Amino acid sequence: MVASLSLPRILRVGGGAVGALGDVVAGLGLRRPLLVTDAFLSGTGAAERLMATLRDAGLQPCLFAGTVPDPTTDSLGAGLTVLREHGADSVIGFGGGSPVDTAKALALLGVRGGRMRDYKAPHTNLGPALPVIAVPTTAGSGSEATQFTIVTDSATNEKMLCSGLAFLPVAAVVDFELTLSMPARLTADTGVDALTHAVEAYVSRRANPFSDGLALTAIRSIGRHLRRVYSDGADTEAREAMMLAATQAGIAFSNSSVALVHGMSRPIGAHFHVAHGLSNAMLFPAVTAFSVPAAESRYADCARALEAATDGDSDAVAAGKFVEALRALCVDLEVPTPQAHGIDSDEWSRLSLLMAEQALASGSPANNPVVPTVEEIQDLYEQIYA
């Protein structure tokens, strides 16, 4: 098997790394970056501090703070206007997955034009696009190291997966100190997102030795640190470990793939506006139980990495322990069911067929150990509701 591997050309990782952002951008020969962020980071002054860092490096940055949670095609228009008026030669995504995903989309549309729908899977996007530099502020999406972006079609509520090297950041600045103010709920949701990335990368039909090593390392670290950082957000050792694990998991799934959890998660986010990491968590135990029979030994490896099973356990026992460990983790992190989250039962049932069709059409379920039918996906949606 020959694996095709891609990751950012430059990675700056560690506490205080964000101070080097100006040097990173200048070192790439870029001069007019557009800093893409959200209203929260703009309001706290964090975006302006980053703008000052860029100006101190002799750059001419411009700020766009209009990113919305789970970016939509409608939300991209204002950013494109600012990008073109500034004459940007690069885009910096500063924030969680949504600002980074927005930056990736703007970088492509700013050069190629057209509609985001033109670039959704199964289309592979090789460019051209403006260079993207990612500065994550959450330990979860891994988007700083992936060749994917997610944008919801405002007309259809379809959460579109767009992939290809055009979306791969040329550089990532990964500074765990930016995550210290994350609230517990966001810490939990993004942490489970990172764990899902690592597990799905490992059990995916497109897994390879390169992604395997990163995935298992990330699973082990998340297992040791996620509960710690959920209970104590000031635990800097756990924060640093989670930030690194999220990037490792991002590199892993970008060079392997995600699978059924992510395929089913995106429609939940699009139709019910559930945070991506939280919808992953809602699905994770049930989808894993569904998938285990086709990849028992791979899930057993995940269990041992998570320290939920030992080398003395058979693969069957270890895989079973892994499912139970995920259930226990979701209890400890207070993950609600869709019902407990306030989603109406009738609306959930009414949309379950459409969500199942959209999940399957995204392509991610085809990478799952068990490739499901539409009916099986509908059944899983019904299982997790209450």
Rank of each mutant, 00 (worst) to 15 (best):
R298Q: 07
R327N: 06
P99K: 05
T179F: 01
A305P: 02
P169A: 04
T187H: 02
A155E: 13
D89R: 08
A129C: 05
M264F: 05
A294H: 06
R84F: 09
S141M: 05
T196Q: 08
A294R: 07
E237W: 14
L130H: 14
G191S: 04
V100N: 08
E382Q: 15
M182V: 12
V371M: 07
L21Y: 03
A318S: 01
L283R: 05
D56I: 11
R84D: 11
L180G: 13
V261W: 01
L226D: 02
E177D: 11
F272H: 08
C302W: 00
E334S: 14
S181Y: 13
L5H: 15
P33N: 03
L168M: 12
G191A: 03
R49K: 15
G95L: 00
V261D: 00
R49N: 14
A121F: 09
V13N: 15
N367W: 12
T288S: 06
D379L: 14
D118P: 03
C162V: 11
S231W: 14
Q147F: 11
S362Y: 01
G87N: 09
S6E: 13
D189W: 09
E324F: 09
V258M: 13
H276N: 07
L59R: 04
F64L: 14
R350M: 12
L59S: 07
N208A: 08
V132G: 07
R266G: 13
G140F: 02
G233I: 00
T149H: 10
A184L: 10
G87K: 11
L80V: 11
V331H: 11
L353M: 14
R117G: 12
S291K: 05
P285R: 01
P336Q: 01
T137D: 00
A300R: 00
A139C: 06
G114N: 11
M51N: 10
M243C: 13
V18L: 09
E307F: 09
L333S: 06
A303P: 03
A26L: 05
L278E: 03
P128L: 07
G45I: 01
M51F: 10
F94A: 07
V323T: 00
S154V: 07
V68L: 14
M116H: 13
D70K: 15
L306K: 13
F253G: 10
L5A: 14
H225Q: 13
G14I: 02
R55T: 12
Q358N: 15
A249D: 03
H197G: 10
T179E: 03
